[in-house]
Design a protein around this nucleic acid. Structure first.
Length: 777
DNA sequence: ATAGGGTTAG
């Protein structure tokens, strides 16, 4: 048998200088003899045109020709011509050359550049398909072929795909690469992939990603937790099940995470099921699992106590050390706190103090803070202060949260003096107040109507920083005591104080948060000052402080105080804003506002109101009513006098019509006269039949209650039409074929049309004039 | 990569 290399290297097999190749090599021939190869000008080294030592069988020659073909293959790869690259490489290997010897001679940089080039050209799939499968056929470890250039290029490409939200594509790619031991973790930030999966509520892709991630357990935990944080328990559970399939042993961390997630998603019963399942595997749960379970079920003291006992018995039986640690006890105290069991909490506190003296446990800042909260909730502020003494005696340093709890204990009891005193003490002790702490203080002052005092504190901070506050404040104290009564009567308008307080906070470096703004808005609402409330709402948006449910409810709560069209419009804007922010079903206050505002049109007609009250509870949970009203009341919709009532119920239709009428009335008072008729669209129905009774209800309201002239679409008066309808009904009853569905009946006899009503401009004007002479309320 | 404590609204 002749030398293998000489066969592969013979001109008949692979000609370096352009002789006819094997059929397999046609492409190589065409391309390599074409544009880029050989090209001495572009790259004079190596000289492909020079004749390689072909027919020699000496070792040196063999080596030389191996180097030559490796260089050639590298060059082809660099140009992104991987088919040609593999043609050369595979031919070499087929000829008996050792693949690893050959691959060691390949220029890794060139191959990497070639890969980068393909990536730039968007040929990502080809890389996986050709390059990786090709290298596999060659028995070359593909990773060796790539250096930083290719990895960078591929990372860039994955980043682009993620930017476009194409997370599945990235995971597809990574799955393929993973099969070739490619270091996929170098390509993307795991959090980038997970965030997208979570945003799309797509657990499947997240699970696929976790399966190929080098630290699978960690990633599964992260996936479970992140879905949980978004309240997506379903997806979290899917990831949990997948993690059990993929991990070879029971992971306490995974169990702990899913139990926490049950808590985050409010399904504490599910956490119990999962715990039972874990017990059934006969694996002893660790302290983390026990503690998480207790914490999630903290609202159920009975259950938490049982778990706690279970822990202790287990320790006893297995002669283990104490599994219940200080965190377990802290959770138990929290559970007592939630159940308002002050005495039990005190007993447990005594017990753990005892354990501490025996050196078994060490009470920490959490323990003391929780106990302070126990007493704060029970309005036992003196006992709360005693806990603080215990704490300092044990050498535990109170932190911001401890101080906040303590201040809150006094605030709950209405002791503003004590609150301020503690705050000063905190500052002296070097405590760093944050916005939450400041909010408690602010709230305490607000509750006691001491706006002036709150402002004074904030002014001090602004002028001299926190740590000067105590002294400055003390100087003011006498004066303040003397003028408390005047302050309660708000000698200085509270509204100036609120704005000032907020700006002081900004300047002191404490960012007013949702709670600060909500408290301020609450004060405005209390003082009947919707204008300032709305402007505060605008300001918080300006500072990118996101309103929450409480904020929306606070501002919308004062519905009865909002009277003007503008105020109602602002409310509706806020409502729409709320919907956009994802708060859906709680539009209770605004519905009431709209109802009351609209009904104000006929508020002196008692009968109508009584009838109304019986109907008001019939709203659908996600009615389109408010959107509809908002649409009509918007300023830019001023000239549209067409009301589309399609899809609304009787009650909703009534409100929308009333809203438009009230708007017309307010505009009229402001000097804008009615410009046109009102057109009311009722929907596609049989002209003389009205299943929902909307038509009847609207006509009753407009014609009978308000005395407006209502025309049907043909401009006949409603009364004329009514007679006609009755006549027709009498006649049709005889002939009607009730077995047919309405739509299939003869249109000539029962016409199907878009029903419309019209309220004429003249009758509206009459109505407005009547309204003016009628004494109000 | 590991839990547990504080504020607002009804």
């Amino acid at each position: 048998m002749s030398d293998a290399l000489s066969i592969i290297a013979s001109p008949a097999v692979f000609p370096p200088s352009g002789a006819p190749p094997l059929e397999k090599g046609r492409k190589i021939h065409r391309r390599s003899s074409g544009k880029s190869l050989p090209n001495p000008n572009r790259n004079p080294k190596p000289q492909y045109t020079s004749t390689p030592p072909l027919l020699s069988s000496s070792r040196l020659d063999k080596r030389r020709s191996l180097v030559y073909y490796a260089e050639l293959a590298s060059k082809l790869a660099e140009d992104g011509r991987f088919e040609d690259f593999f043609m050369v490489s595979e031919s070499m290997v087929a000829s008996g050359v050792n693949a690893s010897e050959f691959s060691a001679l390949l220029n890794g940089k060139s191959v990497a550049r070639g890969v980068a080039k393909m990536i730039r050209e968007g040929k990502l799939d080809s890389i996986v398909e050709r390059v990786f499968n090709g290298t596999r056929r060659l028995n070359i470890v593909p990773v060796q072929l790539f250096d930083g250039i290719a990895v960078d290029a591929m990372r860039g490409e994955c980043g682009q795909l993620l930017k476009c939200g194409n997370v599945d594509r990235v995971v597809d790619l990574m799955e393929s690469l993973h099969g070739f031991q490619f270091p996929i973790q170098k390509l993307v930030e795991p959090s980038d992939i997970l965030n997208l999966c979570i945003k799309k509520r797509n657990p499947v892709t997240a699970i696929r990603f976790a399966q190929i991630f080098p630290h699978m357990e960690i990633l599964f935990c992260t996936v479970i937790l992140e879905f949980g944080k978004k309240g997506d328990l379903m997806s979290a559970l899917k990831a949990f099940e997948a993690s059990k399939q993929n991990l070879d042993c029971i992971s306490m961390h995974v169990y702990r995470t899913i139990i926490d997630v049950c808590g985050l998603c409010g399904d504490y019963l599910k956490s119990r099921t999962i715990f039972e399942e874990l017990l059934s595997t006969k694996v002893t749960p660790n302290t983390y699992v026990f503690n998480s379970l207790m914490n999630v079920n903290a609202g159920d003291l009975h259950y938490t106590m049982n778990i706690y006992k279970h822990m202790r018995v287990r320790c006893f039986m297995q002669k283990l050390g104490l599994t219940a640690d200080i965190a377990s006890h802290n959770i138990l105290l929290k559970s007592c706190c939630l159940a308002a069991k002050v005495e039990l909490a005190q007993d447990i506190y005594k017990e753990i103090r005892d354990l501490e003296s025996k050196g078994v446990l060490k009470l920490d800042v959490f323990t003391y803070s929780t106990m302070i909260k126990v007493f704060a909730d029970a309005k036992m502020w003196k006992r709360a202060l005693e806990i603080k003494e215990d704490m300092t005696a044990s050498g535990v340093i109170p932190n911001t949260i401890t101080w906040s709890s303590l201040i809150n204990a006094c605030a709950n009891a209405g002791l503003v003096e004590q609150v301020v005193k503690l705050f000063e003490e905190m500052l002296l002790a070097g405590g760093q107040p944050n916005s939450q702490c400041v909010n408690i203080l602010l709230h305490a002052c607000v509750e006691a109507c001491q706006f002036d005092r709150a402002f004074r504190l904030f002014r001090c901070w602004k002028e001299s920083g926190f740590h000067q506050t105590a002294t400055v404040h003390n100087q003011d104290k006498t004066e303040e005591f003397l003028s408390t009564d005047q302050m309660k009567r708000s000698s200085m308008p509270y509204r100036h104080l609120i704005m000032k307080i907020l700006s002081s906070m900004h300047e002191t470096g404490i960012q007013p948060d949702v709670v600060t703004y909500t408290t301020a808005i609450k004060v405005c609402v209390k003082h009947n000052d919707p204008k300032l409330a709305f402007s505060l709402f605008a300001e918080m948006k300006k500072y990118q402080v996101k309103p929450n449910m409480v904020t929306y409810n606070t501002i919308l709560r004062a519905r009865s105080r909002y009277g003007s069209l503008q105020e109602v419009q602002q409310c509706l804007t806020i409502y729409q804003d709320m919907r956009k922010a994802g708060y859906k079903s709680n539009d209770y206050y605004l519905k009431q506002l709209i109802e009351e505002w609209c009904e104000g049109v006929i508020q002196n007609r008692k009968m109508a109101n009584d009838q109304w009250c019986s109907q008001r509870t019939n709203f659908r949970p996600h009615s389109i009513l408010l959107e509809k009203v908002a649409e009509h009341l918007q300023e830019n919709n001023a000239d549209s006098l067409s009301i589309d009532l399609r899809g609304l119920t009787k009650v909703e239709a009534r409100i929308v019509v009333l809203a438009v009428l009230r708007k017309i009335r307010e505009k009229n008072v402001a000097g804008e006269s009615v410009k046109d008729d009102i057109l009311i669209i009722l929907g596609v129905q049989e002209l003389y039949e009205d299943g929902n009774g909307i038509r009847e209800a609207v006509i009753r309201l407009l014609h009978y209650d308000l005395g407006l002239q209502v025309l049907s679409f043909g401009s006949r008066t409603w009364n004329d039409e009514r007679k006609e309808v009755e006549d027709r009904n009498m006649r049709s009853e005889v002939h009607e074929d009730s077995s047919l569905p309405p739509a299939s009946r003869s249109p000539s006899r029962r016409p199907v049309a878009l029903q419309r009503l019209k309220v004429t401009r003249e009758s509206l004007q009459h109505w407005l004039q009547r309204r003016l002479v009628t004494p109000t309320k």
